[in-house]
């Protein structure tokens, strides 16, 4: 079982994937996200950090055995149990299909929509409207898939659920208000089921779905 | 061993990943990319296709056993042999790290730089200059990694090399002219080694590295 340290900054949904995976697999994971253990923007620019992680990006994982890994999907995969990765060639490929889908078809539009509401990116009306349309497409596809399924791959939580749920986390917390998300009941049911799993809850705490679509925070 | 059909359009570098993986693993892969087998924009909008692949995107894989899969990384992974995926937990995680790196840190800037030269998108000077800088960063990181390695993970070709090489394919063919790429000799050596592998060659044919940086195609 893997054991090591995850370097990240607080509230990093990418790091949550690895943390939740570790909750399921039992991997011993220390999280270094606040000083003195780790200060984003400083620690990750030190020669010591860059010698292990040349890009300086986080999340970054260092095993107690010295093994270093970057890219959140790779770290989450490494910290998973076999069950989470998919227990057949088909299932493990389907898990990766959803992981790719999250990065390709959810994260760009979720970020474009949510970041201005967090005040961390300039608001652009056209970009936000387009992001909404992209998000509708992704949610419709997910909703159709979850119409006859509890989880994305197989009968239990897998890395697919962990990854897609984390990529939707900020959208549900900030902008997917009831009037918007009501068109995707299967996705809502699936998301709530996920965040209420003890392993998710330990990492995410109580996740409150937004009651009103947050507007950009000037 | 997997056996099935890959739906795509000709010269789709994303589909190449799966095709090359199949060459290594021995998976029996039929490629449907031209009429009458498959016409991009028509066949992928038919109810029959959409019932298997709701997003209508390609590449899309359908096994002879009926198993369907989308997302090029998932398809390539499925068609791989265990050796290509990495033969240890560390190696398989490192393979996925490079797969993520390709999608996150190469494809966006390669697309921004190359698309205008193919006439796919409007030229934008600022976007192109930014893309060049991002490409330099990615190539520098790769060059450092390959300074003491022949391949990206382990001692032999893995899905990491297949994925990263394919994500750089159009950049080497169109814009990475000798004056630009000379700063990354290890990457150049590695790329040429890859494309000269019989399995790569069968799929890509003779890849000619550009002699002059292509300009946007008005």
């Amino acid at each position: 079982m893997a054991a090591g340290t995850l370097y990240t900054y607080p509230e990093n949904w990418r790091a949550f994937k690895a943390q939740i995976a570790a909750q399921y697999s039992g991997a011993k994971l220390k999280v270094a996200s606040t000083p003195p253990a780790f200060s984003f923007g400083q620690t990750n620019r030190t020669p010591a950090f860059l010698s292990n992680f040349p890009t300086g990006k986080v999340p970054a994982y260092q095993g107690d055995d010295g093994f270093c890994l970057t890219e959140s999907n790779a770290i989450a995969y490494y910290l998973c149990s076999d069950a989470l990765r998919g227990t057949s060639p088909q299932a493990s490929a389907q898990v990766l299909q959803w992981v790719s889908f999250a990065d390709a078809d959810i994260v760009p539009s979720a970020s474009a929509w949510v970041f201005p509401t967090l005040g961390i990116m300039q608001f652009n009306k056209q970009a936000t409207e387009q992001a909404k349309e992209e998000m509708k497409r992704a949610l419709a596809y997910l909703n159709q898939h979850l119409n006859t399924r509890t989880f994305l791959v197989g009968e239990r939580v897998s890395l697919a659920d962990i990854t897609v749920a984390c990529s939707l986390l900020w959208a549900y917390k900030q902008v997917l208000e009831p009037a918007f998300r009501q068109a995707y009941p299967n996705v809502n049911r699936w998301f709530v089921t996920c965040i209420n799993q003890p392993q998710f809850k330990t990492v995410l705490g109580e996740v409150k779905l937004c009651e009103k679509m947050a507007q950009f925070d000037a | 061993m997997a056996a099935g059909t890959l739906y795509t359009y000709p010269e789709n570098w994303r589909a190449f990943k799966a095709q090359i993986a199949a060459q290594y693993s021995g998976a029996k892969l039929k490629v449907a990319s031209t009429p009458p087998a498959f016409s991009f924009g028509q066949t992928n909008r038919t109810p029959a296709f959409l019932s298997n692949f709701p997003t209508g995107k390609v590449p899309a894989y359908q096994g002879d056993d009926g198993f369907c899969l989308t997302e090029s990384n998932a398809i390539a992974y499925y068609l791989c042999s265990d050796a290509l995926r990495g033969t240890s937990p560390q190696a398989s995680a490192q393979v996925l790290q490079w797969v993520s790196f390709a999608d996150a840190d190469i494809v966006p800037s390669a697309s921004a730089w190359v698309f205008p030269t193919l006439g796919i998108m409007q030229f934008n000077k600022q976007a192109t200059e930014q893309a060049k800088e991002e490409m330099k960063r990615a190539l520098a990181y790769l060059n450092q990694h390959l300074n003491t390695r022949t391949f990206l993970v382990g001692e032999r070709v893995s899905l990491a090399d297949i994925t990263v090489a394919c994500s750089l394919l159009w950049a080497y063919k169109q814009v990475l002219e000798p004056a630009f790429r000379q700063a990354y000799p290890n990457v150049n050596r590695w790329f040429v080694t890859c494309i000269n592998q019989p399995q790569f060659k069968t799929v890509l044919g003779e890849v000619k590295l550009c002699e002059k940086m292509a300009q946007f195609d008005a």
Binding site: - | P10, F40, D105
Partner: peptide, 30 residues
Amino acid sequence: GIQCLTQDSIWFDKPRYDEAERRFYEGMNG
């Protein structure tokens, strides 16, 4: 922590590139 979210490379324009690529290759394939 929130501000750090913008540190990660996010391809905001990806949908636009996907659309352009799709049109181009649909066009090429008649």
